[in-house]
């Protein structure tokens, strides 16, 4: 009787350990997949934002107008939660950078109107 109980307890312990290890591994894989999915979503959204800003700049050549068209107040920083679009005017044109928090996700440069 005692021997049977011991065997049962040992088997239960092994089963619990196997289940716990499998659950922990699966959880880490799920978390990694979640991070990748979020990164993909950020990249997709930020590249579209930057692309749109650059296309706007190509069309009008004025950074303030781009800011207003993209939903800002005419300034360089445009808050599009959870992203921030930063427009920088330089000698040759404009550089648009999209951030999530402090991390830059995507950036591209645009040249203004030819002439």
């Amino acid at each position: 009787m005692r021997r049977g109980l011991d065997t049962f307890l040992t088997e239960s312990l092994i089963m619990t350990a196997v289940l716990a290890i499998a659950a922990a591994l699966s959880l880490s894989v799920f978390m990694k997949a979640g991070q990748m999915r979020r990164r993909a979503e950020d990249l997709s959204a930020c590249s579209s934002l930057v692309y749109s800003a650059v296309q706007c700049y190509d069309a009008c050549g004025d950074i303030k107008q781009v800011s207003r068209l993209m939903g800002g107040d005419g300034g360089e920083n445009i808050e599009l939660a959870p992203y921030t679009l930063l427009l920088k005017q330089d000698g040759e044109g404009m550089t648009a950078e999209a951030y999530r928090g402090d991390e830059m996700v995507f950036s591209a440069a645009a040249k203004g109107v030819i002439g």
Binding site: A33, A40, C46, A108
Partner: peptide, 30 residues
């Protein structure tokens, strides 16, 4: 658990590579 986590991982990985390819393409065009 193993099968579901692997399916989730491969789907997320392909989603990320698609987003990266699309972003790289936009950058090249610009």
């Amino acid at each position: 658990l193993t099968v579901l986590s692997l399916l989730c991982y491969t789907s997320a990985k392909s989603e990320l590579s698609l987003a990266e390819a699309s972003a790289a393409n936009k950058k090249k065009v610009l």
